[in-house]
Simulated scan of single mutants.
Amino acid sequence: MSPTTVLSTDEIAPRERGLQWSEWIWRHFGGLQSDLYGDDDFDGHLAASRAGDVILTRLEANRHRVVRTPTMARTSEVPYLKIVAPWQGSAIVHQQSREACARNGAWVIYDTTGAYEIDNPERVDHLIVMVPLTAVQDRKLRIEGLMARPLGASGISRVALETMRNTYLELPNMSEQAARGAGETIKQLVELSLLELAGRETMLTQREALRDRIRSHVQRHLGDPGLCVDSIARTLNCSRRHLYNAFAGEGETIAAYIQRMRLEACIRELRQRAGPERPITEIATSWGFGNPSHFSRLFRGHTGMSPTEFRRGG
């Protein structure tokens, strides 16, 4: 029977749950910052088991975010590929200027040796699978272009999804030898899924390629108050219609994406404690917000707090 680690906020005083959860997330996943979108009410449950050297964790919690900075990635002891596969809720993975959303029936893979951010904007029930990076290095896969891509809809990645889920559910009934074998199967299926994805990536649709170019351009020019659909179209030498088509099905418009990226850049800067504090208006202006009142309204809608409250308690 595979040993299980179980952590729950049920026995923690409500006002202490957020801090305790952040500490658990930091320890269990090898260094991750966590925040709760400014919410006061939180509960979370985490149960983890091993299938050989593959770690499978079921995470049930209120909405929250996790961030792995470049410094955290450099200091990590064990390199993993990490997979988030929701049963309920959604996960939005940001890595290498890309963004991928997973819901029930899909999974997204990302690399713990690089910086990333995961948004869980609603209550979630996720399966998190950590596969040693060495498991997919034998075939010299160029994994950089395969991270933060959605998988699981069909083909071998669908088989991998069902295998990961069933393995987690049945681990309590497995011998240690059987669990190791299940872990090896998961590693093989993940590698095959990435190989299949790599084959498709050689024939990336123009829409996918343009979407990546848009996001990369936005990341480089967030501080430009003139950044908009028209300016992006001129720089990338394409029509507004092509830009809108590239973002079709993403769940937000290009303008909403720009706004969210700007807000998250301000949030990261307001979290920082080192050195003298910059005025909040100066931070907002540096990331392209021209109207302080408009910025404050957007910030409160995104985090549940004013920028000043967030700086004091975030």
Rank of each mutant, 00 (worst) to 15 (best):
M1N: 07
L7G: 00
T9Y: 01
R17Q: 07
L19Q: 10
W21I: 12
W24L: 04
W26M: 09
W26E: 12
L36W: 05
D39E: 15
D39I: 04
G44L: 04
R50E: 11
A51T: 02
A51K: 08
A61I: 03
N62F: 03
R63S: 14
R65C: 09
V67E: 08
V67I: 12
T69Y: 00
M72H: 03
V78Q: 03
P79W: 04
V84S: 08
V84P: 02
I92Y: 08
E99Q: 15
R103A: 13
R103T: 15
R103W: 09
W107A: 07
D111V: 09
D111G: 09
T113S: 14
N120P: 03
H126V: 10
I128G: 00
I128C: 00
M130R: 11
L133E: 09
Q137C: 13
D138S: 13
R139V: 14
K140S: 12
L141Q: 00
L146A: 05
L146I: 02
R149W: 05
G152N: 07
S154L: 10
S154N: 07
I156W: 07
R158V: 01
V159A: 15
A160P: 04
A160D: 00
E162A: 10
N166Y: 08
L169M: 11
P172Q: 10
N173P: 03
M174T: 06
E176L: 15
E176W: 07
R180W: 11
E184F: 07
T185M: 13
E191C: 08
L192T: 06
S193Q: 11
L194N: 11
E196H: 11
E201V: 02
T205V: 05
Q206P: 04
E208L: 11
H217L: 15
H217I: 01
R220A: 15
G223P: 01
C228K: 07
V229F: 00
D230K: 14
N237L: 11
S239G: 09
R240F: 05
R240K: 10
Y244R: 12
A246C: 06
A246T: 06
I254N: 01
A256T: 04
R260D: 12
M261Y: 02
C266K: 00
I267C: 11
L270C: 13
P279G: 04
I283R: 09
G290V: 15
P292R: 14
P292S: 08
H294S: 14
H302G: 06
G304P: 04
S306A: 09
G313W: 10
